[in-house]
Design a protein around this nucleic acid. Structure first.
Lengths: 207, 207
DNA sequence: AAACTATGTTGGCGCCGTCAACTTAGAGGA
DNA sequence: TCCTCTAAGTTGACGGCGCCAACATAGTTT
């Protein structure tokens, strides 16, 4: 595992990958710059040629995590078969999105927590960070727009509708991962997920 | 600020208070054992006579934070005037609870984040911890039981209904504090909160 | 009064993020 | 071709952290 030349060639990427693996296994707190450098086979301070500091590295990992989440949601959406009734289809797509979100959170808790962890002092906290969320967010917005298109959601109730949906699903993810539901056995868990998705759809489509 | 005697007398409490103040100002990551000891005017290792370690201290702070949250919710509930229509009253109480929850999260972000932060290795993670949440949780359950009592929520939809409500409100809190909504100006914020609470009530009471 | 125990203190370990100063390898112009 | 310049890595050090072992002190008990 010794690199042939003095210069690495793609250290920024290698460090981000190593740090992402750390986050995958232990969440945001497991992202330790020195360990990532160690795994890449480079001195700790070498990282500072490519990252402003720990927060900057973390922010790179966040972006990767968010991309993985977006991918999981995309897959979940793609795995949803077509439907004749457009209303049923709109609901099914929204549920698929939520399910993809939750399944990712449960399958990759470390990455999920990292994706949404609060910007540490020393992190950019620029619009760039919010941009990385555009994948998941845009999918959700599109999915809710369909509700309007097929007449499931009145235009006057459209504003912030996606925020409601996102809040519910995200909150459930947090409660399942870190909250009081964290020791909930999988059968109950699946039932809860179903019920919360029911609530979201009902909350959106209610008169 | 020098204590008169060699023995402090109530060090555990003093440390917890100091640590709680740290958490209030900077969230869970700001809870640093040495700093708490410093502020109390005691050597760092003295804390180990009263706490198993950093995680144990943190867990004590968590309990305090959860108590403060429960207090805020209780106040919010108490501030709600009576209502003639029992259905309207049930809804109003649930909304008051959610509002109290969210206002606390926004007013005391550090404590709120600490209250719900994931058990670190080294923390008990015993039922005791889940017990501390019994205040907020029980209030929510009671409030939703009223929905059943007044016929707003069918019995068959009762299971996990409080989980749905909690997820939505908790998720919104997280998104507002740390998520993509963290720079949302207060007017929009209040509107969002209203809309999400609408969604919760609608999701619960939908046919 | 003596011994015991609960509660502090000091000093030190290994980890962390970060900085300053030095070294190396490779690219580009004379 | 050689020489220089600079981007990319290195070493060594600093202060802060959680934690441990060993020691000191002050109440309590007998």
């Amino acid at each position: 595992m010794k690199r042939p030349s003095y210069h690495h060639g793609d250290l920024a990427n290698a460090l981000t990958t190593a740090a992402t693996q750390l986050a995958r296994e232990g969440g945001p707190d497991a992202i330790v710059l020195r360990e990532a450098a160690r795994q890449v086979g480079v001195s700790a301070t070498a990282a500072y040629r490519h990252f402003a500091g720990h927060g900057d590295l973390m922010s790179a990992v966040q972006k990767r995590a968010m991309d993985e989440l977006a991918g999981a949601m995309r897959s979940a959406l793609a795995a949803t078969g077509a439907e004749s009734d457009p209303r049923a289809e709109a609901m099914r797509r929204l549920r698929a999105l939520g399910l993809g979100y939750l399944r990712f959170a449960l399958a990759e808790p470390g990455l999920f927590r990292t994706a949404f962890c609060r910007p540490t002092p020393g992190m950019p906290d620029k619009p760039a960070q919010d941009m990385s969320v555009v994948g998941p967010y845009q999918m959700l917005v599109d999915s809710i727009d369909r509700f309007v298109d097929v007449g499931l959601l009145a235009l006057e109730r459209r504003p912030w509708a996606e925020t409601f949906a996102w809040s519910s699903v995200h909150g459930l993810a947090i409660l399942l991962l870190d909250g009081p539901l964290r020791h909930c056995p999988p059968p109950d868990r699946d039932q809860i997920i179903d019920r919360v998705l029911d609530g979201v759809v009902a909350g959106l489509t209610a008169a």
